[in-house]
Nucleic acid binder design. Structure first.
Lengths: 213, 213
DNA sequence: CCGCAAATCTTGTCGCTGTCAAGATTGTCG
DNA sequence: CGACAATCTTGACAGCGACAAGATTTGCGG
């Protein structure tokens, strides 16, 4: 079945996908070449086209895979906002290639049904996790007056300062940290563990003074 | 001098740069073609090489221009953290092409002297502005107990949770918001003004409950 | 004013790429 | 066994970045 020899490769699609991910991790999405991919897989230069149509099709498949993997990772992370954010950053660093593709819609077919479904899947996990944001672990014991306070405030959605605003702020800070980390823009001295570094950055979201213990 | 006719174009470098920026705004950096640029400027296909060396050289020039423009914009924004963040996001949206190139170091020559200088210039402005972060405007009158509190706490730098942590958190949230906005990943309904949307998101950094007033 | 060197742009070429079309091989199902 | 669909190959074409060599213009020293 997964015989990689003979006229039929047997598992070409999966092989091409993982080769693509590896190539992107090495030199970025822009440098990806379908022909080079085919060469790595030991097939002819036009073989990839049959499975993905064209370059955009390949990137679409990678993005789909990425959104699904992200959904899994976030699910595993649990309900607490902090852990959710750390998981997001760790996903970005661990699956750098997927992450870079996912947030460059000009690379793939953003309107593809398969992709919209995958995006929606990971979006749902994110929203579900953030719905419990009252479980945000402050250093103090009290159950987060922050959440309570504006739960009584303005609940109509659409308002950018409303509960959606919390989600936006949380998403922005973890996405920004991940992006800057991947771009190599962050100063050295943060250590080698992006998850831990992200944790202390995320704490600044709702808790003014972090303190060291 | 700026005669665009004849054998010598006269102002080709600037023309190519602005054509490149426009092309990137239309279809992203990956789709940029030196030959297409030359065609737009009405010169031969090899003309750009003389001014920029190669593709990476062109992107380097764009990145330099971007870092300098960002430095200007941040300088104009003043000292308050909130305005600084809004200016950052507005720069990203207004100069989308520059922003996208700046944070994709694999596109250009990150070690070029000219570029490191420009990056350092904008970095200095950022740090200078954030040094006054005690001026962060809370809704309440009091002069931000947040800043005071941990100014007495741990002042040694290098600690990710220290004052550098504030800078990181602020940078992350505005960079993340800008990136998500540009990627079209944010939900509709935030309105058409990214600066204003950013303002209400940034407020979540140190102030738990924003309230609408 | 002259002439020469440097700067600027052109022309030609090479290998590489993505994409399409047409053919070869293999698995599958009636 | 035979036909059909899926899979892969071969061949071709235009566009691209890069390099080399030549043409044209500018500018500066004499």
């Amino acid at each position: 079945m997964s015989d990689t020899r003979g006229y039929h490769h047997g598992d070409l699609r999966r092989t091409l996908l993982s080769a693509a991910v590896q190539a992107i991790e090495e030199s970025g999405p822009a440098a990806l070449s379908l022909r080079d991919l085919a060469r790595r897989a030991g097939v002819s230069h036009a073989a990839p086209a049959h499975h993905f149509g064209d370059r955009a099709g390949l990137f679409t498949a990678i993005a789909v895979q990425g959104f699904d993997t992200l959904a899994e990772a976030l699910t595993r992370a649990g309900d607490e906002l902090l852990d959710l954010g750390v998981a997001y950053v760790e996903f970005a660093v661990r699956h750098r290639a997927h992450f870079e593709v996912m947030f460059h819609p000009d690379l793939y077919r953003a309107d593809a049904a398969e992709l919209r479904a995958a995006r929606e899947r990971s979006g749902a996990v994110l929203r579900a996790g953030l719905a419990h944001r009252s479980k945000l672990p402050t250093r103090a014991a009290g159950s987060s007056d922050a959440a309570e306070r504006h739960a009584g405030g303005d609940d109509r959605d659409g308002s950018p300062a409303g509960p959606q605003g919390d989600v936006l702020a949380a998403w922005s800070i973890v996405h920004g940290f991940a992006t800057l980390w991947l771009a190599g823009a962050l100063p050295a001295g943060l250590g080698a563990d992006p998850g831990e570094a992200a944790r202390s950055v995320i704490r600044h979201l709702f808790i003014p003074a972090p303190g060291t213990d």
